[in-house]
Amino acid sequence: MNSMDEVLLHEFIDILLVAVLILDLLIVATRKLKSSVWMNASQAALLGLMPLLLTGGELEFHVVLMSVAILVVRGLVIPFVLLRSVRSAPVSVELRSLVDQATAVSLAAVLFGLSFALGINLPLPAAIPHFSDLLVPTALTTIMIGLLLLVIRTQALMQVIGYLTIENGIFLIGLALVRETPVVVELGILLDVFVGVFVMGIVLFHISQAFEHLDTTELSSLRD
């Protein structure tokens, strides 16, 4: 592999990461339920490419398998299940949120700044090969944005999206920290996520059947 290829590969990784960041921003800014589901899915799909790139272009079977699995499960199956589960419910296509859009975006701006300030200076073990200076900040930002979504969105579906966004961030930080994650473990995580989302989809479906709405602020009275 010559140096130009290396540069290109490196830049491709960075472009992917920037795209992930832009999707983070969009997912906070959007006001449509459906588009936030697909944004999350495309973010996951972009991350699915990462293991392929990090091996440096050498195609190993288990890595390819994992990428394909992520693409299919996270990129297609999960959004499909989620959208399916809410299709029958009378959920409005507009998002419901505790704060208005400008505030949400400015909170996102603060989180972006915070994650970059922390992530760029985060001391990491020296043993880790250096993929990109953007990797850790991006992962942190994605986790933070997921948490933000969990906090400000009130629909149950968006809580799932928030959870999935955090999962994306964790996946990224996992890539940064553990180069040789055994593929079985990765696939196991994927399976967990899949099952989790599946269960949540079923739950959402039932909630919507029972209550005719999916607003978590109003579900609070169910406690105890």
Partner: peptide, 29 residues
């Protein structure tokens, strides 16, 4: 809100530009 989003993108571009320029490399890792 949209303008704020554009602002974040511009800020992101500055930060990434600094990263790509190697301004952050060589930090104790």
């Amino acid at each position: 809100g949209i303008l704020l989003g554009a602002f974040i993108l511009a800020a992101l571009s500055v930060v990434v530009m600094l990263v790509e320029m190697g301004e952050f490399r060589g930090l104790p890792s």
